[in-house]
Write a protein that binds this DNA or RNA. Structure first.
Lengths: 149, 149
DNA sequence: CAGAAATCGGTTGCGCACAACTTAATCGTG
DNA sequence: CACGATTAAGTTGTGCGCAACCGATTTCTG
């Protein structure tokens, strides 16, 4: 049995508050480029992985089409990307960067420095935090036959 | 200088994803009571601290009136709380639980067990995570004269 | 091959979050 | 006391986030 009855609630609130605080750190950095944090995440995936279907984008960011469709439409309206129905599978839509979207990568540059100086954690603590969050994000491994991925 | 250029971005996404995953764990527990996670947070504050102004509620949850006003209006419409202008200061609004709102505390009961069994972390790791989040939520302590609060 | 089931992306509706603004009340200073 | 500044709460507008649903396409099965 767990010791502190309110511990999980505390963690949950801290998680909730930290997540909002984080996006509010990004805001002044992304606002000049007309981007929100979720939009920036989509662009990062495209910058890193190249063209991707809405489906895979959703798997990567853990967002569904209800969130992505309008978001992608806005990024498309801004000229950062294009959407095209898949040739082989007409159900899918392939999202690709435009020249403008590619250039944005250099224009935005590295947000690391500006962000980290606002957080009161050491390198070691950041690494700890990351690994804890990664594990917390992973569901409690249901042991299915041959599914180690 | 930091080692991994993408580390902070990783942490930020993990934070963002973990926060959403957490509220989706709460959802099936709160839905039967007609509550959302932010609404539940407001009730928790009221259960714990008693009547409170919108201002103090906002300071506690780090939410502004633009978020709280409609949220409180919905909780009021559900009969869980009442709002009344402050007697001494007509600008403030005091939020108080109704009988219904009080009873809800027992009806909902302890969400701890149902939540923790969904997370793949040990007690020690949860404590670590909490302390890291608490520190991350705290701004990098600007040393002002006599302001340790 | 035909029909059922699954998949993909989109739309709708609702509830946050938050910036920007408004109104009303209080406070501070001359 | 007067009046400008500050504060509290509310409103408006925009963009998520997600459940629920829809239409089109593909895949599975008999």
């Amino acid at each position: 049995m767990r010791e502190s009855a309110a511990l999980d609630e505390m963690i949950c609130f801290q998680l909730y508050a930290a997540s909002r605080a984080m996006t509010s750190l990004y805001r002044p950095l992304l606002d000049p480029h007309g981007l929100t944090y979720p939009q920036y995440l989509v662009l990062r995936v495209l910058w890193h992985d190249g063209p991707i279907t809405v489906r895979d984008l959703g798997r990567t960011l853990r967002l569904d089409s209800g969130t992505l469709s309008p978001l992608l439409k806005r990024l498309e309206a801004q000229g950062h990307l294009t959407r095209a129905r898949g040739a082989d599978d007409e159900r899918t839509v392939l999202v690709s960067l435009t020249e403008t979207g590619q250039r944005l990568r250099d224009e935005i540059g590295d947000l690391t420095q500006a962000l980290l100086c606002s957080v009161n954690l050491t390198d070691d603590e950041l690494i700890q935090l990351r690994s804890l969050l990664v594990r917390a994000n992973r569901p409690p491994a249901i042991p299915t036959k041959g599914d180690p991925a």
